[in-house]
Design a protein around this nucleic acid. Structure first.
Lengths: 351, 351
DNA sequence: CTGAAAGCGCTAACAT
DNA sequence: ATGTTAGCGCTTTCAG
């Protein structure tokens, strides 16, 4: 492969100076239509595809790249349709503005071996879609590189803009709905609360050490609605299997709850499956509610009662926050609204 | 925000020259442990986080970035668990080698407005996970930029390495399986064959204009097994809803097929749902087979009979091909093996 | 083993 | 409207 042709080559071929050639491409400055024409022609002639991103980057100090740190387990994030859709919204919103989204795998472990990219990849800003914990070495690494960060969820006291959804209000709406239907024996399935993964009932001790903002806010929402769960089970992940496991734990008992409120649609789907396994009809024997508003066509003919969050809008809001930061502004935290969507999986308890 | 500290600052602070400081970080050259120590100390002191990716890039001509062109519809790719998992495998394999994955949205339309990044984003190589069509302007754009391309599927005659799976062998295995079970009336649901999206029976004319290599190979495999479908329906997308739509078309007839062989697991799941809607039991009344080997826990207690393809391995193989290209080699096409996995959704037809 | 100097490809003052 | 000149931050010969 021969050396790439450069702006200098084009300029030479067109018989103009490099800076003039530059203007022909950037359009940022006065240039006669004729010379511009000539430069562009020379470029086509030489197969020059426009100014190199690298040179431009170095000069401007901007890479045009926004890193998305895929924390924890790359795999897990990708299995979660919520993150994927938010990511989609981000990329779709950033792309037309000339910014690319770089996937940055990171274990968050102390040994950086695998987190090479966190400390080396070019980025103008970084986004942590979730799982941002206070003491994460990822933060330190980014901070020391001077890379501004936007959070897709997480603590609001880190001096870092957070773009989230109304988690608390969401579960409040759900709880209200169930209470209004007349449910008194309601069980709750939460997202992983932090630390080691487990599927187990949550006691006060566990509740005290909770380290997962969305889970925390979604639990708060229940209290707002005056709901006192008969039992709360922590799921090991926001996955269908984990929901099924939790569901079995909840429903395979002498006196099962009349409704199960879960922290995510995938968990709810799992509970639905567990109920089916146990011969319980939904919603006649037990109501099930989710959170997220995913499109789950495979649940048909059931439609999950859920609180929908605006994925694309969240991605776009994150993109906006990033743009603001890059423009030197200090974006405020954003909390996007959620909406209760009634499906076929909730109904009044049997008399 | 004050200016970033640079290598020059560190060098000055350590009382050495810039080049020496550079060596302290890169380790590529002789340097005394003492000075190295001193430089590193100065760096820590100044909060210098290591050489800037930008400067390094410009110098080396390498950005350390592999673009993944999300063709067609960003949304659609992200909704497809297959692409997502392959992407995951890629990122996981590239990351530790110091290469990042950049998401590059592209419409593939003539007007480049939205495809800004295809023509401007820094990348050392580009990967088209799927949907690579011969005449795509995306190809031209990348070619003219001198960016080497790897395909995750597609035509083998483009002079571009292709990393694919044994599509043809896969459906052959599936067809054999159904034939051995005694099925004679088998229907087929294909992936979109190219061009306009539709859900409709496929005739010879349509078959002739097929422009989707995987679909084509998967159809070839049926012939290899001597299977002659009673009807072939093209789905409008590889999605559950599309599968359900195709399933209704196939099964809601006087004399439905005894088995449905689909081109993807999501399509199969859709057919399963359609069968359920129509009161057909699976596999007693109709057998259903998929392709991909996705983990679909929500199908429980059913387990789809399918051909599994190695997602992570495919991602890794693509990564290998990229590395080879960057090393100046010319990687050969790769075809990864698939494996028939029997589930509970296929059985002999009723007598 | 270390330092000086020359760029990588581009843009932006500043002059003309 | 165009050319000249200086770098952006780094690596890499090449001398010393």
């Amino acid at each position: 492969m021969t050396d790439r042709t450069t702006l200098a080559d084009v300029a030479a071929a067109a018989g103009v100076s490099v800076s003039t050639a530059s203007l022909a491409f950037s359009g940022a400055g006065p240039i006669s239509a004729a010379t511009k024409e000539r430069v562009l022609a020379a470029a086509t002639e030489l197969g020059y595809a426009g100014p190199s991103a690298l040179g431009r980057s170095l000069r401007s100090g901007r890479s045009g790249i926004v890193g998305v740190v895929i924390g924890d387990q790359l795999r897990r994030s990708f299995r979660d349709p919520v993150s994927v859709q938010v990511l989609d919204g981000m990329a779709g919103s950033l792309g037309p503005r000339g910014l690319g989204v770089l996937l940055v795998p990171a274990t968050g472990e102390e040994g950086y071996t695998d987190d090479l990219l966190v400390s080396t990849a070019p980025m103008d800003a970084a986004v942590l879609l979730f799982g941002a914990r206070r003491e994460s070495p990822i933060f330190d690494a980014l901070r020391s590189r001077g890379i501004p960060v936007v959070l897709g969820e997480g603590p609001h006291d880190l001096g870092v803009p957070v773009v989230g959804v109304a988690d608390r209000r969401g579960t409040e709406l759900l709880a209200q709905h169930l209470v209004e239907l007349g449910h008194r024996r309601v069980a709750v399935v939460t997202l992983p609360l932090g630390g080691a993964r487990r599927c187990a009932p949550v006691d006060d001790r566990r509740l005290a050490e909770i380290d997962c903002p969305p889970a925390e806010h979604r639990l708060d929402g229940l209290r707002d609605a005056g709901l006192d769960p008969v039992v709360t089970v922590e799921a090991s992940a926001s996955l269908v299997e984990a929901g099924a496991e939790a569901g079995r734990l909840l429903l395979d008992v002498a006196e099962p709850p009349t409704a199960v409120l879960t922290h995510s649609d995938l968990l709810a789907a799992g509970v639905l499956i567990a109920a089916r396994e146990l011969g319980l009809r939904v919603p006649q024997d037990v109501s099930v509610a989710g959170f997220d508003g995913l499109d789950l066509p495979w649940l048909a003919p059931d439609v999950l009662t859920s609180v929908s969050q605006p994925f694309a809008a969240k991605g776009a809001a994150i993109a906006d926050a990033v743009m603001a930061i890059l423009a030197g502004e200090t974006p405020k935290d954003v909390e996007l609204p959620v909406e209760l969507r009634l499906g076929t999986t909730t109904a009044p308890p049997r008399a």
